[in-house]
Nucleic acid binder design. Structure first.
Lengths: 150, 150
DNA sequence: GCGCTAAGTTCCCCCAACGAACTCAGCCTC
DNA sequence: GAGGCTGAGTTCGTTGGGGGAACTTAGCGC
């Protein structure tokens, strides 16, 4: 069954090499929600300073975040963190995780929901093929070897 | 800006409490690709036995996997691992991670691609609202407090 | 110069991951 | 029915990363 490839060539494995621990994706989530500064992140996440410092550096090095200077009146110049386009493109991962957590780990109704700004409808991720067909996950979604296949 | 809630009520944080390390999602991926047995998983992932054992137990306890008995001819009865429906429903997370990794971490064309079985078209995740509108991620996708909001 | 603050860095402790070796259960052969 | 084989773990000692707390640094206002 299934299409099995070398693990170290798998994009999921690579992505998890960078994002596969407890904090990175939460940092990305917080930054995309406007929590941008070291102290805010530390407090909101409850993560140790040194760990946060390490994660932020790793994410900057990996090109997901960039340091941006800012200066509040009466304070020295500091910097906060902003998502790069690579970081912003993690939104489907966050959305999928949120939907799954809402469904399987929640102890009540979901605290936040993705919405279609303008029409206000709830948003879900739907698999659609390049010919515009909506793909049914259970039966119609498969894997094939791609151009970089074995 | 953004909608920020208590971190321990966030479904992303909860999901990462369970899945937020290097192996869990790779195990789910492998099992959904037909790599179901302890020794196969260990070899394909290159993970230490005790760690794999811990992960598998945690995932079984969390209801993502179940142990299924099997017996090969001439061998004693053993068991392998199968996804429960909760485990199967992680496919959007895996798909999103794979797409992101293909785009941002790959050193060549993607080794495997999701396809629409039958029509053969490449499949992508598209955010769609409950009224059927395709939502543009950059501008039209927002968050609102849900029923379980603060 | 002094104190304040955000953003780190350093220190030490501890747990979780790691590889290697060992165990265990049932089947087969001899 | 003893001994070997195999898959699926468990145990053990070591190492690396996460955790908290204390310290450092740079610039601002006083």
């Amino acid at each position: 069954m299934g299409v099995v490839i070398d693990n170290d060539r798998c994009s999921i494995a690579r992505a998890l090499g960078l994002l596969g621990e407890r904090w990175s994706l939460q940092i990305v989530r917080d930054i995309s929600n406007g929590v941008r500064r070291f102290e805010e992140l530390r407090e909101h996440l409850g993560v140790a300073r040194n760990v946060l410092s390490n994660r932020l550096s790793a994410l900057v090095d990996a090109g997901l975040l960039e340091r941006v200077a800012y200066q509040e009146f009466g304070s020295r110049q500091r910097h906060e963190y902003a998502l790069t386009s690579a970081g912003r493109e993690l939104w489907p991962v966050l959305m999928a995780l949120m939907a799954w957590g809402d469904r399987h780990l929640a102890d009540g109704p979901p605290p936040v929901e993705p919405e279609h700004v303008g029409c206000g409808g709830k948003v879900a991720l739907v698999p659609v093929c390049e010919h515009g067909h909506v793909v049914e996950a259970g039966r119609e979604l498969g894997l094939r070897l791609g151009a970089g296949g074995v």
